[in-house]
Nucleic acid binder design. Structure first.
Lengths: 203, 203
DNA sequence: TCCATATTTTACCGAATTGTTTAACCAATT
DNA sequence: AATTGGTTAAACAATTCGGTAAAATATGGA
């Protein structure tokens, strides 16, 4: 019994994840999630009392999955230019597996900014080490003088944006050709890293 | 009669804009829009037959306001590095006045990608001229060899992202200090332009 | 002043949706 | 066989919300 218990909860979570990420909290219907999970609507309320709670669970899980993935690398002991390559590579990889996360988070962020922002902060993000490294490299003359915070924002922006704006870009630039867009995305792996490194390298 | 007509319609549009941009189509309530406009709910339906139509009007207006503003400059006859400065400056300016537009568009884009993307394309966006200029500059040796499409995406990403992710960044990096974040945003004007130009200049 | 038209209010309807309840069912455990 | 707990089905309650009808009020012109 317990095995089916665990499986069902997992199935519900997966189904809810699919629906919520695509349609957001208000846009999603409990019935739709039940259908997606192949179960009864009453069972949703049996496992997660309310839509609110189910959503909370999904949102928390999504953040915990997404944030550490790209944060961790920033604190490791790697030469700066190589670190930036690794960061964009891993971050892009994560986004390629979960392309809907950014849009999802952003939308919920508009609904209740303080709550979401708090959850993200609690997710263990720590820019301090990276900032220190950048300042060091500037001292050593490897990196041109710049504000490390802007650099961090730039790095994230360059990775995230193509996923957030995918439908526009795919339509305007690629005439709705999905394969073409995927090709474009995989090019960005290297493109973004060299774009950043070219910009910050001192000469 | 006509004077109050125009004023009321305008009031409704403004109210709907505020609510829709913050909460999206499904997240918004007609009653809330009516309250915001200081009128009765029935009057909304008198001016705009349905929620759908009202939303459509707001969305169209929003796009027409946002898109040409930053597109036009890309086609003008300006030296490339200067053009990038002007682009980031104007684009940032527009976003500073309408910080909610990117998140709004992105969310609606997820709801009905083809419809929205079509509307944007119809808004008169034309990357061809800019792409040609970049290729020319590469030929002339002013710009290092790169894919102009990636450059365009990078330019937009660097401008837009801080507005989309504002609540997170303001909380994590600035401890919810609004003034601090605004300061950061205005720094980006110059920061982004030099970040790009440093990256693409040939040496 | 009085009429016609535009605008506003009030009250309400119907559909959709969340959440609950109840009874039955099934499968594994004891 | 009896028990237990996950599961289903169906109906229902409660609420929210978009939309409408109709009466009331204001406004400008004859």
């Amino acid at each position: 019994m317990e095995s089916s218990d665990v499986n069902t909860e997992k199935r519900i979570m997966e189904a809810a994840r699919v629906v919520f990420l695509r349609k957001g909290m208000e846009g999603s219907r409990m019935q739709e999630i039940a259908d997606e999970a192949g179960i009864n609507k009453a069972l949703l309320h049996y496992y997660f009392r309310s839509k609110e709670r189910l959503f909370e669970a999904i949102f928390r899980e999504t953040l915990q999955q997404a944030v550490p993935d790209f944060t961790s690398i920033l604190g490791e002991d790697i030469p700066i230019f190589r670190k930036i390559e690794l960061f964009t590579e891993r971050y892009n990889e994560m986004l390629r597996r979960n392309p809907l996360i950014p849009g999802f988070v952003i939308h919920e962020l508009n609904r209740s900014p303080q709550r979401v922002a708090g959850m993200i902060k609690g997710s263990g993000i720590n820019p301090a080490a990276f900032i220190r490294q950048i300042l060091d490299e500037i001292d050593r003359g490897e990196v041109r003088p710049l504000n490390p915070l802007h650099l961090m924002v730039n790095m994230i922006a360059l990775c995230v944006f193509p996923f957030v704006a995918r439908p526009i870009m795919q339509h305007i630039f690629f005439d709705d050709d999905e394969a073409g867009y995927n090709e474009f995305i995989s090019e960005r792996n290297e493109e973004v890293a060299s774009f950043i490194n070219n910009s910050i390298r001192n000469r």
